[in-house]
Structures are given as C-alpha cells and as structure tokens.
C-alpha cells in the first residue's frame, strides 16, 4: 500500500521546489513562494531546509546536518537519520566531507568550497516581519525597494541604545537590491555570507518560502555608513576544550564563572584531533 519514494517527497513536489530554487538563485535575495509539503517532522523544526535537501539529493551525496553548530543536537540527529533512511545517502559530521550541509542558526567554521551547498532552516523568511506583518504590504515594499521602515527601526534603536537591538536574523542586503532575512545566525556569521564560494539556499517550510544567495554575491548588513557593524566579541577568550580563538564561542554559565567552548563542535573535535595527531607524530 505504501510505495517507497527516493527522498520521501513525491516527484511533482520535488519538481516544484527545484523550479523555485532555480528562480531563487536567478533573483538573489527574493523570497519565492512554494507549496511546501508536510514533512514527518513538525513545522518549525526545519521542514523548509529539509524539503530543499530532499529535492537536491542524489545517490552519491554526503549530508551533514547541524543545529546551532552541533551535529549531536536532538533535531540535527533526527533530521539526519530521516534523510539517510529515506535516501540511503552517506552522512557525515565533517564539514569538509559534506556535499550538502543543512544547518540551523550557524554557518560551519571550516571554510566552504564551490562543491558544497549550504541549506539554511528558516523560521521567518520575511525580513520585514518586525516592521510590517501584512503580507500584501510586505510584497509591495520589496517591489518598491523602499526599506525606509527598516532604516527607521535602525535609527530609533541606534539613538536609544547605541546600536540595533537585533542580535540575530540581522537584515542583509543582497547584491545591492533585496533586503533579506539571513535566518537566526549570529552577527558573527553575517560577514561569512558575503562572497561565499558555496551556493547558499534558505527554506521556510511553515511559511512556504524559499530563497537563495548565489556564490560570489555581495551581502552587506543593514548599517549606517558612519557606524561599524559590531559582531559578538570573544576577544581574549578561547575554547576551554581545544584552545581555539577567533571563532564563535558558546558561553556556559556555571555558578560564579563563565566558560567558553567552540560553538561548532565538529571544528572543536577536529582541532583536538589535529593536536593529538601532532603529538603522536
């Protein structure tokens, strides 16, 4: 009664997603509506990224799924297991070995290559939600390229608090045209969206939208010219486990003290392993 389909989604649904991905790449930063099928994981748990990954997959792919920088996180484990069980493709935690990387809230620390595709899970695809909830009006704003409401928000925040209050999902301008929601990555990762050798795809399953940043595309944060874009600061701090510096660190608060660890656990593991190998040599 239940026929097995490669990569779960029926072929016509894949075709629709593929068509919209091609459009998304051709119109960088523009959010393309798609029909968005229900997945066996809940809406809001990465179903947009999942549908993109499933539509991309072919037999010789190697998939990495990571959540807040950690491949062992509950949802990453679940999604990875699901993808491999419906497609039979290989899975990895190693950024370097992956052909497709599905991620939530982080960009892996290890630099990506032209042969890789980064797929972001997106809760709110629309950068304008914080200033305009009405979808028809949002569309009009994008059509007119009139982002004054975002600039006003930035101005108000800057005058009251010294900087934007937006800590993640920081608005970015793609190829000097569309303002785009980069998904809830920290500001540290925003600069890493710019001019990436890898194709970056974004999927919001619940909101039924997908969009893309082609490789080698200009991505700039919403910012006044005379104000610096300040990212999370880990100066003088290093990972307690592997000693890494200059990367995004998790803060672990315990009674009376704060400890720092690599947010990207694969990066941390690799650094430890390299150090261990070096000693053994």
């Amino acid at each position: 009664m239940i026929k097995r389909v490669f990569a779960f989604i029926d072929e016509d649904a894949k075709k629709e997603i593929r068509r919209n991905l091609l459009k998304a790449v051709a119109i960088p930063g523009y959010i393309v509506p798609f029909s968005s099928r229900e997945m066996p994981v809940a809406r809001g748990w990465g179903t947009g990224g999942l549908q993109i990954s499933l539509s991309l997959l072919q037999e010789d792919d190697c998939i990495k799924v990571t959540d807040q920088g950690c491949d062992g996180s509950v949802n990453a484990v679940n999604i990875r297991d699901f993808i491999t069980s419906v497609s039979g493709v290989k899975a990895t935690v190693n950024t370097r070995d992956a052909t497709i990387i599905q991620t939530r809230h982080r960009i892996p620390e290890h630099p990506l290559t032209e042969d890789q595709i980064l797929v972001f899970q997106v809760p709110y695809p629309e950068v304008l939600t914080m200033v305009e909830p009405d979808m028809a009006k949002q569309k009009q704003i994008h059509a007119d390229s009139d982002y004054s409401k975002l600039w006003v928000l930035l101005y108000e925040d800057t005058s009251q608090y010294g900087d934007s209050r937006i800590s993640n999902r920081y608005p970015v301008e793609i190829n000097s045209h569309y303002m785009m929601d980069p998904s809830p990555i920290p500001k540290y990762d925003i600069a890493r969206l710019n001019n990436s050798p890898a194709l970056q795809l974004f999927g919001a399953g619940r909101e039924k939208r997908l969009y893309a940043i082609p490789p080698y595309t200009r991505v700039t944060p919403l910012k006044f010219n005379d104000r610096p874009f300040i990212v999370e600061d880990f100066k003088g701090k290093s990972c307690k486990r592997c000693g890494a510096e200059g990367i995004f660190l998790d803060e672990i608060h315990t009674t009376g003290s704060v400890h720092y660890f690599c947010s990207d656990t694969e990066f941390c593991d690799n650094k430890l392993k390299e150090a261990k190998d070096a000693i053994e040599r």
């Binding site: 809940a42 809406r43 959540d67 809230h105 010294g162 209050r165 920290p186 619940r206 995004f248």
Partner: peptide
C-alpha cells in the same frame, strides 16, 4: 493546526546561540 503546533513546539529546540547573541546585544545596550 499542524503548522501552529509545530511552531509552538519548536521553541523547545535549543536556542542558545541566538539567546547568547541577545545577551551580547543587551550588554552593549
């Protein structure tokens, strides 16, 4: 219901990167 339930429950997923970013911005402000 499938959408609203899913999104409501997604708040149970780890959000420590984003929350930490919130705290950084709060500190700066």
């Amino acid at each position: 219901g499938i959408e609203s339930m899913g999104f409501t429950n997604h708040f149970k997923l780890p959000h420590y990167v984003t929350f930490q970013a919130d705290l950084h911005v709060l500190d700066k402000a």
